[in-house]
Structures are given as C-alpha cells and as structure tokens.
C-alpha cells in the first residue's frame, strides 16, 4: 500500500502575529513557518502503518517554497521513502493547493492520501476533501484511528463529546488526519543533516492549478479587545472572584 502525504508550512503561532500595511494579510517580517502539526500527524500515521507492515511505501510531497527542502529531508529522516517537490507555480489558496497536489497525485499514483485535517490558515477550505474531490476519490476527514485490511481501510471519525463513527473506505482514498496513534516523532537534526548529504528530492510539476477560489480577503485584524476579560492584579482579587462565583 502506497501512502502519499502532502506537507504544508504554516505560520508558527509561538510568534506574535501582526497585520501588514495593506490590512489584508499577515506581516511576514517576523513570521516563522513550520510544518502544519496535523500534516505532521498524517506523516506519523503513514510511517507507523509502514512500520507495522500495513504500508509499503510512504511518499511526502510539498510545494516548492522556502523551507520545503528542509521539511522534505525531515520527512525522510522520519522514515519517508521518497519525497517530491512540486514546482511551476505558487498556489494562492486551498483550492489551488488542492489542485496542485491532485495533479501530482495522479501522476505519482497512490493507494492512500493522508493530509492534516486542517491548518491554521486554510480559510478557504480543508485540503483533504478538496484533493479527494479533484481526484474523484472517497474521503473521510477528522480521522484518528486507522486499520488496513487489503484494499479497504477501517477508520474512526471523531464526532463531539468523545463519540466516533466507524467507517469502511475503499482505496484509493483520502483521509484527513486529526491525530496519529502516537505523537509525531522527533527527527534528530543529526539525522536530517545526514539525510541532506545522501538523499535526493524528486521534482514534479504541479500542473495547472486553475483559478483562485474567488474569496479575497477584505480585511484582517486581531479580534476586538473590547469586552475582554477583566484583568486581575493579584491573588487576593482572584480569591475574591472565586468566592463570589461560588467556587470556594
């Protein structure tokens, strides 16, 4: 079973985020990017399935941008067999991103596609179902439990309140991963540096990504502070509040 995992970078939320002069986009001055944590889970789940024998090959893909190389080498260090960088364009939104990956997936071939269930910047839709739609493949997202049996996967889709729906999915299929069976493994920098010497990144064209999804940002701003929390000065104030509200 061949699992392909599209990887995307998102702004690192540890940093403070600011709006740029246009008022419509993030100020990229002090922004750092990192791998979308759900994509990390998707990659981890794929590698776990390979390690357990359910999967044979794990392929990671990323759009050619700053930081893509490091992200792909890191995927190899974690256990991916092959990595592909998609060139020839700059997808502007989730739909173009989905089309780019769908094009590449068609040429690459796959049994399963694991994407992160969502990302912090996917305002115009979640990648998994979008890619599935372009590929004409079935999709289940918000998945946190996968077992493979031949050409079928049994997956657990999370609902609220701790409930889950169990589904059978015929491959080839796309799954939007909420959580892998264990937290994404650490990729030792020692290993990544070693991998950088020995491994190579394949390149493929992302093809025609079509037009943007048609929803331009009108404005962007931090949430209005207005009626925020009443900030307390010290422990005594806190204790007063607790007493007042019946906690003590």
């Amino acid at each position: 079973m061949k699992i392909v995992v599209p990887l995307n970078q998102v702004p690192d939320l540890v940093e403070d985020l600011e709006v740029d002069a246009s008022g419509k986009a993030l100020d990229t001055d002090d922004i750092k990017f990192k791998l979308n944590e759900f994509d990390d889970h998707a990659l981890e789940e794929a590698i776990l399935l390979k390690e357990s024998g359910a999967g044979d090959e794990v392929v990671a893909m990323a759009i050619d941008r700053d930081g893509a190389d490091k992200m792909l080498f890191t995927a190899i260090a974690k256990g991916a067999d092959k990595v592909v960088k998609l060139t020839g364009g700059n997808p502007a939104d989730s739909h173009q991103l989905g089309k780019a990956f769908a094009n590449a997936l068609e040429s690459e071939g796959f049994d399963m596609v694991f994407t992160g269930v969502q990302s912090v910047d996917d305002r115009d839709g979640q990648l998994g179902p979008i890619v599935a739609s372009y590929l004409g493949a079935p999709c289940v997202s918000v998945v946190s439990g996968i077992s493979i049996s031949g050409a079928t996967a049994v997956v657990h889709k999370e609902y609220s309140g701790g409930m889950m729906g169990e589904f059978e999915v015929d491959m080839p299929a796309v799954l939007g991963i909420q959580a892998a069976k264990q937290a994404p493994r650490y990729a030792p920098v020692s290993k990544i540096r070693q991998v950088q010497e020995t491994a190579s990144i394949m390149e493929a064209s992302m093809g025609d990504v079509g037009s943007a999804n048609g929803s331009a940002v009108a404005s962007m701003a931090p949430p209005a502070k207005g009626s925020g929390a009443e900030m307390l000065d010290d422990i005594d104030d806190l204790i007063d509040v607790l007493k007042d509200k019946g906690a003590i």
Binding site: S94, G125, C139, S141, E158, Y159, G176, S215
Partner: peptide, 19 residues
C-alpha cells in the same frame, strides 16, 4: 467533523467559494 466533509466536497465539485 460532519460539516467539513460535506462543505469542501460540495464546494470543490461545484467550483464554489468556501469560507
């Protein structure tokens, strides 16, 4: 969880804007 599967699939198939 349920909405995500529906919304994205429909919007992509019909080429409609998603928010």
């Amino acid at each position: 969880s349920m909405g995500m599967d529906i919304a994205n699939s429909v919007a992509t198939a019909l080429d409609i804007t998603t928010v």
